[in-house]
Simulated assay, not measured.
Amino acid sequence: MVRLVSKDLNVLYDKQSIIHNINIEIPDKKITTIIGPNGCGKSTLLKSLTRIINHESGVVLLDGESIHKQNTKALAKKMAILPQTADHSGGLTVQELVSYGRFPYQKGFGRLNKRDHEVINWALKATKTEAFKYRPVDALSGGQRQRVWIAMALAQETDIIFLDEPTTYLDMAHQLEILELLQELNQSEERTIVMVLHDLNQAARFADHIIALKDGEIIKSGDSHSVINSEVIKKVFNIDAQIITEPISNKPICLTYNLIKGEN
């Protein structure tokens, strides 16, 4: 099943074409990862799929309707986005920050009702951040803060969650912690996860569907074996990679690689 698609999507940034005629289908209730070199348009694509930025032409459809024609609060009940620079909490406590996820459901003066508190507490429990409930977000470690931001996205009660490089600046243990949390949410809550990742092995391990971008165009999309192979990696990153199959997960991993010099 597919709920979110783009058709002939073109996006400009500072009058420069960034995304070129992209047609994608995001598998429902799966984890989709977008990979590609710096500046290839990964974050731009993510933002255009969530209506953060406008596109020049083409269309993004959610449930058969253009996202630009949907009511803002109604759309916010369907999709949540965690941007790459989600680190400005303004002195808020964990509970206060997570409560912002209830904005699409607020009426009048925006007072939290019983249902709101139930969802907030559930989101804290699901992300294992309930122990930090009354602590300032700024006082938490990087991994803890990232889990709190994910809790805020969960509090929106959306079927689709977008994350732009959720593991950036985290050490290896915290990266795995975040990715395993997202995998658990996908499997237990059937949330559709769409995220940008830099690490190819993490993408191969955790994604059901991978989209490889270069210069604003899709080079290849499909499952990990279709995308994480030496031919595609050469086209996308200009590197000669040795890919093997990891015996436990049966997923491809990049064992080693070298830059291909003298080629673009």
Rank of each mutant, 00 (worst) to 15 (best):
A207H: 06
I26C: 01
I219Q: 12
K77S: 04
L97Q: 01
H209L: 03
V236S: 08
Q175P: 04
R205L: 13
D240K: 12
F103Y: 14
I150F: 05
E25H: 08
I52F: 12
E217D: 11
N21G: 13
I18N: 04
F103D: 04
K78W: 00
Q146E: 12
H198G: 02
E231P: 06
I31V: 15
K77F: 02
L179H: 05
G110K: 05
K30W: 02
M79P: 00
E165G: 00
D199E: 13
T245I: 14
N258R: 10
V119F: 01
R135M: 14
L97Y: 02
A80N: 05
Q202K: 03
E65S: 12
N23Y: 09
K73G: 09
K251T: 08
V148Y: 04
F206A: 13
L61K: 14
T33H: 03
Y134I: 10
T256E: 11
C254A: 14
I161E: 00
K69I: 07
F103Q: 12
I24H: 02
I160P: 09
P136I: 10
K69G: 12
V119T: 11
F237N: 05
A80P: 07
D28T: 11
A241W: 02
E189Q: 15
R51I: 03
T158S: 14
G39M: 04
K251M: 08
D240E: 13
P104G: 09
E96M: 08
Q183E: 13
K125Q: 14
T245P: 01
D199P: 12
N229C: 09
I161D: 02
S89Q: 14
G108P: 00
Y257F: 15
L12F: 13
N54F: 06
N264L: 15
D208S: 08
N264R: 11
I239A: 05
G58N: 11
L170N: 06
E165S: 01
V98F: 02
A80E: 10
S6Q: 04
A155F: 09
F237K: 02
V2Q: 07
G101D: 00
G216D: 07
L45Y: 09
M195N: 12
D8P: 03
F206V: 14
D159Y: 01
F206L: 08
I218L: 07
V232Q: 02
D171Q: 07
S6C: 13
D28K: 12
L4N: 07
F109K: 09
F237W: 07
D87E: 15
A76I: 03
T32I: 03
D87L: 11
R205N: 06
G39S: 09
E246V: 00
E157S: 08
S6Y: 06
V194R: 02
G64A: 10
A241M: 00
K133D: 11
R111G: 03
I193N: 03
V11T: 08
F237P: 03
L170A: 10
D116W: 06
I193F: 03
L181M: 15
T245K: 08
G101L: 02
I178W: 02
L140E: 10
A123N: 02
S66V: 04
G101E: 01
Q95S: 10
L182A: 01
I67C: 01
N250D: 13
L61Y: 09
I233H: 01
S43N: 05
I233L: 15
I24V: 15
L92C: 05
S141K: 08
E180S: 13
R111I: 08
